[in-house]
Design a protein around this nucleic acid. Structure first.
Lengths: 329, 329
DNA sequence: GTGAAAGCGCTAACAC
DNA sequence: GTGTTAGCGCTTTCAC
């Protein structure tokens, strides 16, 4: 019924080994033989069974992707970058949503290993102790995209959030901001730490401080941004740094609704730069994270590990830019 | 090195078959034996090899997903629904981006088959003749989510766009609209046809017509929405139906920028209802497509096919609602 | 340049 | 309830 390598071999009057060589582009085949085999392959409509190949060769050309939420704009852009490079290198991707839940992350990791993936890309703003350990013990290479894994000894690709925060903070101060606030969530712990560090650094250089009450932690959605503004407005901040675009958009509209003018009385800047930024008025000023590239470079790095190529630098920092659009002066 | 079923069998002093039974939850095992085997499994940290299992059983518990663009908000919400149900039924999903390119769709389809997936979910607004044929000849079940496959004899899950268009058109006419326009793209061909049919139906009931010049076809992005407005403004439409949210948002802002007031002089309604709708001001009136559910129900339907359960209805129509927010009177 | 044959790790009859 | 055994479809030595 299903045509196998054996059928092709018989029909082409060669051995299975030869067919295998042809299919895998091995050079040690006489052109004449190769042509004959290819002809039979076409005639019989032979399609190699990747599962059998995986079992015999111990390589599945499949990588696993652990992602918090594929319906989140930020992560889906990373995923697209990942996927394109995977396809380019002939890998397939098995994608599973973790909701940032360490327990689920662990389960997914084990399931991926049982599927014999050749490597794993981990997305998620926080690397829990348990996951860190699992990654470090993993039998296949793992790369983290969008989060810095350097301190945990994990290969990673991301941007320098601290530098970005310093740059934007300086800009906001130059434009007259004195009272700052920060809006984030629990998903992007690492990035958040870096941003807060950069923010506080520059603030202290100007004899300014960030009160703990001015830090809001939520769930990084649009609605949560509205809540964040409600919580922060009593402090009358004149500049807010927001980790996520969705939250920032919530801030913009919540401010607008109570008559706080953006950017005149309140400047807002976000650290995501998803395609949402230009779909708001005023358009959102933001740190341009090259999301697609962060995914793409992460996958490229993983292919290097999987093919045992030389790795110059396991912790890649991609350049960022700050785009001052309508929500800053 | 890697622990196999054989190692477990030897250590537990039983046969491989028994270990296999325990691992697969087969009931014909004495509780005592079961416990012993489970103990050894834990002790040896045995993890079944899904690839070997796939080869032997001819079931991979993996489904393929062909998706136009995972970074598109509309599709990523479908994908999340899909994935959750797949996980619930213990399937993994291999996701590949097609960019709506029939050639790529075909390649992906073949690659998925060679990976021996148990079923395939196809997402894409258009089902080309070639793909239709491939699906109908497929050795594994295929379900289309978000597009009606009924005419093509393909199992599908979506909403009734024609009815939705009729309802919204009537509403707009009730609110005084006389000159209509339509903005769509080439990606959602099927839905678009249905919407246009419904629109024209109701229009003709009111002795109104939709001029062909009033139909704009683009690429369903925010920027394209701006272009669409540029192209249509000379006709001074007082109501625009838009297939995609992103395009609709472009329309809103383009209108705003030239002083056309929404919804006072121009009403806009979109057919997507992604999470974008509330992130604009005024908030977008839209047909509520239950995106998550369309994905989820599609995957559920696929599991029925894969398990050879009875199918009551291969072409599921999910209910929709119209939410009149800020861009309609 | 090509073939023979031994697995890869598991499932699924079938026998007992 | 449990064991034996023959594959699943391919890759990969090792000969020749």
């Amino acid at each position: 019924m299903t045509v196998t390598i054996y059928d092709v071999a018989r029909e082409a009057r060669v051995s299975m080994a030869t067919v295998s060589r042809v299919v895998n582009g091995n050079h040690n085949v006489k052109p004449q033989t190769r042509d004959k085999v290819n002809e039979v392959i076409k005639k019989l409509n032979y399609r190699p069974n990747a599962v059998a190949r995986g079992l015999a060769s111990k390589r599945t050309t499949t990588v696993g992707v652990i992602i918090p939420d594929i319906s989140n704009v930020y992560y889906s852009q990373l995923a697209r970058g990942l996927e394109d490079i995977a396809t380019m290198y002939k890998y397939h991707t098995i994608i599973s949503n973790s909701d940032n839940d360490p327990q689920k992350e662990k389960e997914i990791f084990n399931n991926l290993l049982s599927k014999q993936v050749d490597g794993i890309i981990f997305l998620g703003g926080t690397i829990s102790e348990e996951i860190k350990e699992i990654i470090n013990k993993s039998s296949v290479p793992v790369v983290v995209s969008g989060t810095n894994g350097k301190d945990d000894g994990i290969a990673s690709v991301n941007i320098d959030f601290k530098a970005a925060a310093e740059k934007t903070t300086q800009h906001l101060i130059d434009k007259g901001a004195k009272t700052f606030a920060f809006v984030g969530g629990e998903y992007s712990k690492k990035a958040q730490e870096e941003v807060l560090m950069g923010l506080k650094n520059v603030l202290s250089q100007h004899q300014l401080t960030l009160d703990d009450d001015h830090i809001y932690n939520g769930n990084e959605t649009y609605k949560d941004g509205i809540k964040a503004f409600e919580a922060l407005k009593k402090y009358k901040p004149d500049a807010i740094l927001s980790i996520s675009d969705e939250q920032a958009i919530g801030l913009v509209y919540a401010a607008h609704d109570v008559g706080v003018e953006v950017p005149e009385s309140l400047q807002i800047i976000s650290f995501n730069n998803t395609r949402l930024v230009e779909m708001v008025r005023p358009q959102l000023s933001s740190v341009i994270q090259p999301l697609y590239d962060i995914g793409a470079v992460g996958m490229r790095l993983l292919t290097k590990y999987m093919n045992e190529e030389d790795i110059e630098e396991p912790n890649v920092i991609l350049p960022h830019r700050v785009e001052y659009r309508g929500t800053t002066k």
